[in-house]
Design a protein around this nucleic acid. Structure first.
Lengths: 121, 121
DNA sequence: CTTGACCTTGACGTCGGCGTCAAGGTTTAG
DNA sequence: CTAAACCTTGACGCCGACGTCAAGGTCAAG
């Protein structure tokens, strides 16, 4: 199938597909006229990449999942490296959430202090 | 005082000071030779901006605090608009934390599912 | 044959807070 | 007098995931 078919079936834009290719996530064949050609597996790959990006992962981090699919697995996350990537992302989120929670705490302190200061003077 | 003195006293780089100026946060005078000249108030302003940026706010969001200082207040956060900005930032953090928590939840679900899938097959 | 819907590569724009040259003018210490 | 250490404006680089326009080749329908 052609790129626009793949894009439509995977729910992304044509531009996104080409971007994924530039990042090494998809490796389309080429028709005689130079057009990129995609397989069913590519549809699964792009869908997976889309799903992982929506979970806040980077294209880099989707690699293990893509490779897992290319290895012939029906699911992208049944390979150990993919599980590791899941855990790594969860750890990232934990760190980030802790940071933001800390910032929130500092802000509420500042707010309370400013309010009481206003109340006093 | 000159820009490097201000930068040092406020704990930021010269480049940062000029950037703040481009964003309208600092308005230095000019010496006869074209050099920027700063006041004590500017030191307080830059320090405040630095502190707020470290809390994850944007330069835009520091405006009310800067104006509060310029109005002659000793504290940047005693003005109502500043308090509003604090609350707005806290709300942003709450939203962001909720988003990340949701993503984390989806990831732990995916991980558990993938693990059990591996265990079964 | 023509039109319009595809396809190709190439490359700049986005957003924020600066870092980091470049190419000069100014000031100050020795 | 000179060199170091300032200062000035201007402008590109960074990072990530594309959006968007340019300029052109290809293909199917009427």
């Amino acid at each position: 199938m052609h790129i626009s078919d793949l894009a439509e079936r995977a729910g992304v834009t044509v531009r996104a597909v080409r971007y994924y290719e530039s990042r090494g996530l998809v490796r389309p064949g080429r028709a005689a006229n130079g057009y990129r050609t995609y397989t069913e597996q590519d549809v699964a790959v792009v869908r997976e990449v889309k799903a992982l990006l929506s979970l806040g992962m980077t294209t880099e981090q989707t690699y293990p999942f893509v490779e897992c699919l290319r290895a012939g697995n029906e699911r992208a996350d049944v390979c150990p490296p993919a599980l590791t990537a899941y855990r790594a992302r969860i750890a990232e989120l934990d760190d980030r959430i802790a940071e933001l929670t800390e910032l929130r705490s500092r802000l509420t302190d500042l707010l309370a202090d400013a309010e009481s200061y206003r109340g006093v003077t």
